[in-house]
Design a protein around this nucleic acid. Structure first.
Length: 811
RNA sequence: GGCCGUUUAGCUCAGUUGGCUAGAGCGUCCGGUUUACAUCCGGGAGGUCGGAGGUUCGAGUCCUCCAGCGGCCACCA
């Protein structure tokens, strides 16, 4: 057979093969060179042949700023197993890699480095800060790619995409425009989950709920007593609510009461709302629409009686000027001070010191989340989730992963509208311009003046009182806050546009950026649309989306929503969710425990193959897995075993004039080959069913305990012929290759060096194992692995035949 | 409060649609270096598959209930 190979590769392969094989497999002698051979062979790119069926996996884009951790190693291994397997089966296999700008994560990390220099993000205008983070990311980008290569990832690096690539951004913005046109985007004032430490709003999904004990204060409230854990928000109260069926308070409903508090006496209306639980506390609720989600909803339901949000906590997490002498206190401090003052004023009836409840905290920094009123752009979610639910019902997408399909359905069924703006700089700026003309008194901005100092205020104050030019404000803008008013004539008009509108007016850009997930939700189609011509047509919908179950709602769900919206098709047909990797005792890996497995350290010590196999063997989708150094060492031993099995077979070839023409006569050979190929079929089947961990274990056992322990030993006694043994070795190298690509390739190359031209015709179908043909049953007549029927089984079968209930009789 | 997962050898876990005489790694005990591999080979001990019912010729596998562990969701102030 003539193999058309690039002569350079051929030369390298020749040079690579040294006749001598070391007694032990030393990964460091092979991995880098083998990866080089693969890359130069061009086999990472999908087969060009039109006849080859497409197979595509989009790689979850790693955070551009994130060094490799064990989670990466897991996804690299599983996806690489699938891609290598399908590639060997002859598919035109594309594994498309990329990186994510990871807005909040990256900006947060960058701000830490700023802090070390004694600076903060408030020292810079928008453009300057963006540029600084861009440069910072450029320094680190690419590191993770090099690290993934060390793990053996056979991705097509030539198709690598970054979420902030110009053409990707363009498509993401197009989608936004389209959503807006279709009425799926709206601007509204709602309470958002605001982290005062990170300085941005989050979506509901990014709020972590933790159980906590806190004092529950019972305070006098006009004719009532109300229970609250947040006395500091009382300055923002606008009404009092009771349950409509609560007979105790019926007479008060609709009345106006007088409440004397720390800042004087106020009038308030009493409303009846069924969300109030008569059993809780005193059954009376103070309504604080600006600082509590439930209260906000009560206001929405009773707008005629209940005044709207009165914000008393600022975005800095401190009480504002409406709180009189308490202004400037942090929420936490204010709570204590207010409680003390209430007590002193005789307004505190009693305190339940250990009230257990849950509070929302920032998933990033664990700061308590403040619900704050903020005008935001929202994505109307229901029309999108409906389509996903339908696709799931119609089985257009299937989820592999321990019950997570149900979790996904639950998410989709209960999802709330998505606030897609974030108050950070690092991301794709929302393409929105406000015409501030005539609204200068209503719009607050911050910017950096010529002296490099931050200035803030309404546009009116800055221009008319402090004498700044409107253009210099715009040029060095940090943030803009455009309020929403009930009255039409007070509402600030905006247009969707990337560039400043040409129309008359004074146009200020929105300073919010999109939630990172808004762009990554579009990842499958934007990466294919902006890549080589025809990729989208050929590879979309993709075959498998593989990722950790922890980002199912953040990413997978949203990709389905956006993919169906934009293309009318699901972005992927299968979802494989891997579990988290924990330490050998089942604990989460953390720096403080010192139990982190650093993939690069492990790779250096035991080899990439050992790490890959340790991660994947016996893993189950959706299920966490414990991995310790012992597991990795055991798999390093496997690589050595593979190497030595090959070494033995190869040594026999060179010693005993290996004869290809030897006919297939021995019965033992036939049995051996029959079993060999049923192992191959079983592994293939397991991979097709995404039983990857099981396939790996099965292979491990068959290779080690059957092929090595039994068959090689038999061959020493002449019970299995040499050529059959060589065939066995080649088949196992191929089957093992997706899991442990380096050592199998190294062994395959060694074998190729020893085989004669004639021999190669039989055993050799490619210069490189990674491009070789996946083993299949040689003839349809060969049976599956014969199993001895046990006496018990025979008996049972007989009973069955006779229609007799066996019961205990067989024992 | 709702949902999901899990419970199999000393430890960590596998175990397709029921067919098991229940496996692997690590650990442990005994024995082995005449050349594939001591990162190894041979052999052993160790499990009433969380508990109780049920379906079936047959249940680790399916159904019901109970219990422990873990996770996700939820506006009880």
């Amino acid at each position: 057979m003539v193999i058309p190979v690039d002569t350079g590769i051929f030369y390298l392969v020749l040079r690579y093969n040294m006749r001598h094989m070391e007694k032990r497999y030393t990964h460091s002698d092979h991995e880098t060179r083998i990866y080089g051979l693969w890359e130069q062979s061009g086999a990472f790119a999908p087969r060009a042949s039109k006849a080859a069926k497409p197979y595509c996996i989009i790689m979850p884009p790693a955070n551009a700023n994130d060094p490799l951790h064990v989670g990466h190693a897991m996804f690299v291994t599983i996806e690489d197993v699938l891609i290598r397997w399908r590639r060997m089966q002859g598919y035109s296999a594309l594994w498309l890699p990329g990186a994510d700008h990871a807005g909040i994560e990256t900006q947060f990390v960058f701000e830490k480095t700023l802090k070390r220099r004694g600076q903060s993000r408030f020292d810079f205008d928008r453009d300057k800060l963006y540029q600084m983070i861009w440069d910072y990311v450029q320094e680190n980008k690419g590191v993770v790619v090099e690290q993934m290569k060390k793990l053996g990832a056979s991705a097509d690096w030539s198709r690598f995409r970054f979420t902030l690539d110009e053409d990707i951004v363009k498509l993401v913005l197009d989608t936004f425009r389209q959503l807006h046109k279709d009425g799926l985007v709206y601007r509204d004032l709602k309470l958002v989950n605001y982290c005062t430490h990170c300085g941005t709003a989050f979506s509901d999904l990014e709020v972590k709920h933790i159980k906590k004990k806190a004092p529950l204060y019972y305070m006098k409230y006009g004719p009532f007593t109300v229970a609250t854990v947040r006395p500091e928000t009382k300055f923002g109260d606008t009404a009092v609510a009771v349950n409509p069926r609560d007979s105790r308070y019926k007479k008060w409903v609709g009345k106006t009461i007088e409440v004397t508090g720390l800042l004087g006496t106020f009038k308030m209306n009493v409303v009846a709302d069924s969300s109030v639980d008569p059993e809780f506390g005193t059954g009376v609720l103070k309504v604080t629409p600006a600082h509590d989600h439930n209260d906000f909803e009560i206001w929405k339901r009773h707008q005629d009686i209940v005044p709207g949000p009165k914000q008393v906590i600022g975005f800095d997490g401190k009480l504002n000027e409406l709180t009189g002498k308490y202004a400037g206190l942090s929420v936490k401090k204010a709570r204590e001070v207010v409680a003390d003052d209430l007590k002193e004023a005789g307004l505190l009836e009693r305190v339940d010191p250990d009230y257990a409840h849950t509070i929302g905290v920032c998933y990033r920094c664990s700061t308590a989340i403040e619900p704050l009123p903020l005008p935001q752009f929202f994505l109307k979610v229901e029309p999108l989730t409906r389509k996903v639910l339908q696709a799931l019902r119609e089985k257009k997408v299937k989820v592999y992963g321990a019950g997570h399909e149900k979790v996904l359905v639950h998410w989709l069924a209960t999802l709330k509208d998505w606030n897609i703006g974030r108050q950070i700089v690092w991301g794709i700026r929302m393409p929105i311009w406000y015409n501030v003309k005539g609204h200068e008194v209503r719009i607050a901005v911050s910017f950096i003046d010529k002296g490099g100092k931050q200035e803030m205020g309404t546009i009116d104050q800055l221009v008319n009182k402090r004498g700044y030019q409107i253009n210099e404000i715009k040029e060095r803008l940090q943030q803009i806050r455009v309020p929403i008013y009930e009255k039409e004539e007070n509402t600030v008009p905006y247009v969707i546009s990337v560039d400043e509108p040409k129309e008359d007016g004074v146009w200020f850009p929105e300073t919010d950026t999109f939630d990172t997930w808004f762009s990554s939700a579009q990842w499958p189609y934007v990466t294919l649309m902006t890549n080589k011509k025809g990729d989208f047509k050929r590879f979309y919908p993709t075959d498998v989306m593989e990722t950790g179950y922890d980002i199912l709602p953040f990413w997978v769900m949203r990709m389905l929503m956006m993919g169906l919206y934009k293309t009318g098709k699901v972005p992927f047909k299968k979802v494989y969710l891997h579990g988290l990797i924990r330490d050998e005792r089942g604990r989460k890996m953390s720096k403080s425990l010192g139990n982190i497995i650093n993939p690069l350290d492990v790779t250096a010590k035991y080899g990439a193959d050992a790490l890959r196999m340790a991660l994947v063997i016996r893993s189950t989708p959706g299920q966490d897995k414990n991995v310790g150094e012992g597991d990795i060492r055991a798999m390093r031993n496997l690589t050595n075993k593979i190497w030595n099995a090959a070494r033995y077979v190869i040594s026999q070839i060179s010693h005993d004039q290996f004869l290809i023409s030897k006919p297939e006569t021995k019965k033992q050979d036939k049995d051996f080959l029959s079993t060999l190929y049923s192992v191959a079929d079983a592994v293939t089947q397991q991979l097709e069913n995404f039983r990857i961990g099981f396939a790996a274990e099965h292979l491990y056992n068959e290779f080690w305990h059957w092929f090595c322990d039994e068959c090689i030993e038999k061959s020493k006694k002449g019970e299995i012929s040499q050529w059959a043994l060589v065939e066995g070795l080649v088949v196992f190298l191929k089957l093992l290759h997706p899991f442990v690509p380096f050592v199998t390739e190294a062994a395959y190359l060694q074998l190729g060096d020893v085989l004669s031209k004639e021999d190669k015709k039989k055993f050799w179908d490619s210069e490189l194992l990674m491009s070789a043909r996946w083993p299949r049953k040689r003839s349809p007549t060969s049976r599956s692995k014969p199993r001895k029927a046990s006496p018990r089984k025979k008996t049972v079968a007989l009973f069955h035949k006779l229609g007799v209930k066996s019961g205990q009789s067989s024992s």
